[in-house]
Simulated scan of single mutants.
Amino acid sequence: MAVLPYMQFYVADYLADTMHLSTEEHGAYLLLIFNYWQTGKPLPKNRLAGIARLSNDRWTDVERSLNEFFIDDGNTWTHQRIERDLLSVKGAQSQRSEAGKKSAQKRAEKKTKENQPKSNDRSTTDERNSNDRWTDVERSLNEFFIDDGNTWTHQRIERDLLSVKGAQSQRSEAGKKSAQKRAEKKTKENQPKSNDRSTTDERNSNDRSTNKDPDKDLNTDLKDQTPHIAGACENGPSPDESPPQELDDVFWTDDPTVKFPMATTWQPSPDFKRRAAVWGNILDGPDPGYSPQELASFTTYWKAEGKAFHHVQWEQKFSRHLASQRGGSPPGAKPKRQRQGAFEPSGNYGEKPPEFN
């Protein structure tokens, strides 16, 4: 095992000593010194060819050139430069190890001394000195307290403590009353409606049913006076006419009690085109009655406004937006209403009427 995962390698010194070596000899020499540093001991001669990764024939030629860098004692090759570097590294490691051991020992001794209890002599002396100092200080502080023989009382602090305790008690009582009121209010809201309310609803229902009777009679009279209407009512709607379709609530995806601001991911209902027609905005073209560009223009405009509406209100705005945009108005603009009863003068301005001639 190597003493260090790296070795000191001085390129200038190496090249100065090995300028005469071939490429093959350079490789064999580097492998030998690397193995030397890795094992930390001289190289055995019977393994030199294997360490250099050469055949026996090639090693015989290379050995003549590399022999000059090592000391051959008959069994091993020793490299003096690597031996010096190994001794230096081992010495530095030994010094650091000894220094670490001494430092750890000092820290342990210091910790042991800190954890030892102080001697009785020192504690007795400290207590005596403390009592002497308190006797001198007591004379100055006695004027701020009331001495009843056993305790010292500070009047200002006592008043502040009473004030704080009183305020805390008041806040506690107020909180309890507020919680009780909320609980009573919640209980009343959860209770079923009283019989008086149901009786009032029944009375109002009876009144409404009574008010409807004259209307039925009036409709009967009108049908009698208009035979063509009566006949149509009796025969029912013609085959060509179909009753108006009601809006299907299956596709309502919003909570009618929640308002939300516009987002780029907002989508109208699947039957948006039919809803727009019910609201008086006829949208030409195939379903869904709008293009992705028109929807993007609408959502971008209202997202910047930051206003919140219900889902159905957004759909109504979108249908009006499509009608106004296709008529040439900008997004969010209301359709212009034509003024009625505007004064339109006749003739040319500055012309005198005939009556004044």
Rank of each mutant, 00 (worst) to 15 (best):
Q8L: 09
Q8A: 10
V11C: 03
D13W: 01
Y14R: 08
Y14Q: 02
Y14D: 08
A16E: 15
T18E: 13
H20A: 04
L21Q: 08
T23R: 14
E24A: 14
G27N: 11
A28W: 07
Y36A: 05
Y36C: 11
Q38V: 00
T39H: 14
P44S: 02
K45C: 04
N46S: 04
L48T: 07
I51W: 05
I51D: 08
W59P: 10
V62E: 03
V62C: 12
S65I: 01
L66R: 06
E68I: 09
D73N: 15
E83H: 02
K90H: 06
S94M: 06
Q95H: 06
R96Q: 13
S97C: 02
E98G: 06
E98I: 01
E98L: 08
Q105S: 14
Q105M: 13
K106D: 00
K111G: 07
P117G: 03
P117Y: 02
S119A: 13
D126R: 15
W134E: 05
R139A: 11
S140Q: 15
E143R: 15
E143H: 12
F144W: 14
D147M: 03
D148H: 13
D148W: 11
G149Y: 07
W152G: 01
H154W: 10
Q155I: 10
R156Q: 13
E158H: 10
L161G: 00
L162H: 03
S163D: 11
S169I: 04
A174F: 07
S178E: 12
A183M: 03
E184M: 09
N190K: 13
N195W: 02
D196G: 05
R197G: 06
S198L: 12
E202P: 01
E202Y: 02
S209G: 06
N211I: 08
K212M: 10
K212W: 11
D215Y: 14
T220P: 01
D221C: 07
D221P: 01
D221G: 06
Q225K: 15
H228M: 02
A230F: 01
A232E: 11
A232L: 10
C233H: 12
G236M: 05
P237Y: 10
S238T: 13
S242H: 15
Q245P: 02
L247Q: 11
D248C: 08
V250T: 14
W252C: 08
T253F: 10
D254R: 11
D254P: 00
A263V: 14
W266V: 00
P270C: 06
P270I: 03
L283G: 03
L283N: 12
D287R: 10
P288W: 05
Y290K: 00
P292L: 03
E294G: 04
T300P: 00
Y301L: 07
W302E: 03
K303R: 15
E305A: 10
K307R: 15
A308P: 06
F309D: 10
F309V: 00
Q313I: 01
Q313N: 12
W314V: 03
E315L: 12
R320F: 03
Q325I: 00
G327C: 01
G327P: 01
P330Y: 04
K336L: 09
Q338K: 13
A342I: 11
F343T: 06
F343C: 06
G347D: 14
Y349G: 00
G350D: 11
G350W: 13
E351M: 13
E351L: 08
P353R: 08
P353Y: 09
P354W: 09
P354M: 06
E355W: 14
